[in-house]
Amino acid sequence: MAEADETSPESLTLWRCIGCGAMGNAGECVAACAFKRALVVDAASHADLLEYFVNLHEYNEALRGFAGDVVAETATPAGFERGLADLRLRAKNLLAQAPRENAPQAVPEDERAEIWLCAACGMVEAPRDCLGIYVRRTGD
């Protein structure tokens, strides 16, 4: 969810009308409403992007560690000669571990939904102009 704060849940289960695209959840506000705008995407797209980000972060940390080792090993001419073969092998292995899969594409804007989330009770509203078709399916 974009523009969320510490009071926003990480995941929401919402109904979505296949006719007009309106979304929401059951529940009535129990206090003074405190609605905030948020953008949501489906759970599967979010999970794919998050997993790819975590993999890139882990690979970046491995590269950072290797770069530190290169600096340490090559600080002296003797260390350079001694460690060059090992560094080449480690570099080759590290490059083989690079994430090769294509990055998941950012969720297209037409698949993102603007919702209004109440910080007081968690109620969600995302009204649309109704087409008179009331088929609501629930999803994360």
Rank of each mutant, 00 (worst) to 15 (best):
R37M: 05
L94R: 12
R64S: 11
P77A: 08
R112W: 02
A103W: 00
V107Q: 00
L95H: 07
P9E: 12
A44Q: 15
V135D: 14
M1L: 14
Q105R: 08
G79C: 11
P127A: 06
E109S: 06
R100C: 04
A78Q: 14
L131N: 11
P127R: 12
A43W: 00
R100G: 12
L94C: 13
A126R: 01
Y134A: 10
R82F: 14
F53H: 14
L14Y: 02
H57D: 12
R16T: 13
F80Q: 12
V41N: 02
A47G: 05
R112H: 00
N60V: 02
C118Y: 06
A26M: 05
P99E: 07
L131G: 06
E3G: 06
L94E: 11
L14M: 06
G65D: 10
L49N: 11
A96D: 09
A91T: 01
P104V: 01
A119D: 06
G65V: 04
V30N: 09
C118F: 05
C118V: 05
L95F: 13
G24L: 03
C118N: 06
G21M: 08
R137D: 08
A96Y: 02
L131H: 10
G79V: 12
V70P: 10
F66P: 14
R128F: 06
N55E: 15
D140A: 11
T7M: 04
E125G: 07
P108A: 13
W116D: 10
L49M: 12
Q105M: 03
W15V: 01
W15E: 05
R90Y: 03
L56C: 15
L89F: 03
Q97V: 01
D86I: 02
V70W: 06
A75P: 00
I18M: 07
E81G: 00
D5K: 03
S11K: 07
W15I: 02
G139F: 04
P108N: 05
G21D: 06
H57I: 00
G21H: 08
C20K: 11
Y134D: 15
C121E: 05
L56H: 13
D110L: 04
A43N: 07
L63P: 08
C20N: 09
A4K: 15
R90F: 08
E51I: 00
T76M: 12
R100A: 14
D42K: 09
E58P: 01
V40Q: 07
S45H: 04
G24T: 02
T74R: 10
G65T: 05
L131P: 01
Y134M: 09
R136G: 04
L63V: 09
H57N: 12
A26R: 09
T138Y: 07
P99D: 09
E109K: 10
P99V: 11
A4L: 07
V40W: 12
A67S: 09
F66T: 12
L94S: 13
A26Y: 04
L63E: 15
I115R: 03
V41E: 10
V41L: 04
P77Y: 00
D69Q: 15
E51Y: 00
D110Q: 06
T7W: 00
A26T: 04
A31D: 12
E61C: 03
L39G: 00
L63W: 08
H46M: 11
P127V: 03
A91K: 14
G79H: 09
A38W: 01
N25R: 09
E51A: 10
G65Y: 03
A26H: 04
Q97S: 15
E3N: 14
R82T: 15
A91Y: 14
L12F: 11
E114A: 13
F80L: 15
